[in-house]
């Protein structure tokens, strides 16, 4: 089934993202110890596939990306992307005494944060929309942002030349962590999902 994506659909997706990301940020705030975390209202957009790799400053910038694929009633890809500086600051915040390097401990911290953020997001989505969502174990890659985003898209065999993208940026003042959460719903399952959500095709 091919979903016809309209503004109405984007609004619903945005609302779902809002709730999901709100939950995720609360979890992150608890991990970091009551720290205030700023979160932008998620943006839901339909953008040309070709422009996606440039979303994070040029495509060649090295970033840390945690990738999670969720299947079930709706196929989603979730990417939690941090600049290398932010990744180092996040590791240092959660692992006292660490130098912030991307060693075994450091990478497992990032994977775990990705895991918790994603689980909170998916729980909220699952509860609100009554969808069964089955996330895969998170995976980390440290590489060019364009390579990370395009690989995540290719893993989904994206058919359309435009993709639905939900994006939230979050930042902490004290520890200087800036992150991006990208959610790529599989366009093939969007139609199915909206039938479930809204009770009509």
């Amino acid at each position: 089934m091919k979903a016809k994506i309209d503004d109405n659909m984007l609004d619903v997706l945005k609302e779902l993202a809002n709730i999901g990301v709100g939950n995720a940020v609360t979890s992150l705030s608890q991990m970091l110890g009551e720290e205030r975390i700023n979160m932008d209202v998620p943006v839901a957009t339909l953008i040309p596939l070709q422009d996606v790799p440039d979303l994070l400053g040029g495509g060649e910038v090295a970033v840390a990306g945690v990738y999670i694929k969720s299947t079930g009633d709706m196929d989603l890809t979730i990417l939690f992307v941090l600049s290398l500086d932010s990744a180092a600051n996040l590791i240092k915040s959660l692992l006292p005494g660490a130098n912030g390097e991307m060693d075994e401990m450091g990478t497992s911290v990032l994977v775990e944060v990705g895991n918790i953020l994603t689980a909170s997001y998916l729980n909220a989505l699952s509860m609100m929309a009554d969808l069964r969502l089955l996330p895969s174990p998170p995976q980390l890659a440290v590489d060019m942002s364009g390579a990370i985003i395009s690989t995540a898209m290719a893993e989904n065999y994206l058919i359309q030349d435009e993709v639905v993208l939900l994006r939230t940026t979050l930042s902490t003042q004290e520890r200087r962590i800036d992150g991006n959460i990208f959610i790529l719903p599989d366009s093939d399952t969007l139609g199915k999902t909206f039938t479930l959500l809204l009770g009509s095709g």
């Binding site: 596939l49 070709q50 440039d54 495509g59 060649e60 060019m144 395009s150």
Partner: peptide, 23 residues
């Protein structure tokens, strides 16, 4: 050259594509 894109060119110059992952 962006993702899912191509370009052709006669000399001189450079054609570049960035961020090849699984692509």
């Amino acid at each position: 050259v962006k993702i899912a894109d191509l370009a052709v060119k006669r000399e001189p110059g450079i054609i570049v594509t960035i961020g090849l992952g699984s692509c």
